[in-house]
Amino acid sequence: MDFLFYIFSALTLLCGALVVFNPFSRNPVTSAMFLVLTIICMSGLFVLLKAFFLAAVQILVYAGAVIVLFLFVIMLLNIKEEERQRFRKFGTFLGAAAVAGLAWILVTTVTSSRAGERSLANNAGETKPLGELLFTNYVLPFEIVSLLLLVAMVGCILLSKTPDTEDTNDIEEETE
């Protein structure tokens, strides 16, 4: 199974890099499609960890819903500006230097440490144990996330509402 892990993680990294740094295309749609590939490879990693639920959610929610939204936005806004922009040499150099530095730290840390001693419990990633954990140990954070979603929803409605109509509508309703 080890080689599968290496294949999937290499593919994840490669596709992830192609999302932000694609030498062949500056088209945002291409980037979004590579993001889909990244996410699919990541769900492969989850499968290797026997976290089948997370793998399925990854595909359904991210590859399915979120990326479709991305594509909608990109196509609706018709972003051409980005394509015309050239790579800035200095920026590319700085970015590459920062990435190389971080990668060096990561590689030295990972190679200097041994593999995890504790192996995962066999069924830790399946739906039932996950649900049990969510509703026992992590019930409080789980509930806070619901509050978070409420805030996000209220915020979306507020920010996309056209400002001036609101008050007049209310007054009209009153007079009626």
């Binding site: 409080l140 954070p141 806070i144 978070l148 805030v151 209220v154 915020g155 920010l159």
Partner: peptide, 17 residues
């Protein structure tokens, strides 16, 4: 750290709005 992250996100996302 779960609580830390969730609390911070609740604060930050509300402030974005």
């Amino acid at each position: 750290f779960v609580m830390l992250f969730v609390a911070i996100e609740l604060i930050t996302i509300t402030f974005y709005v």
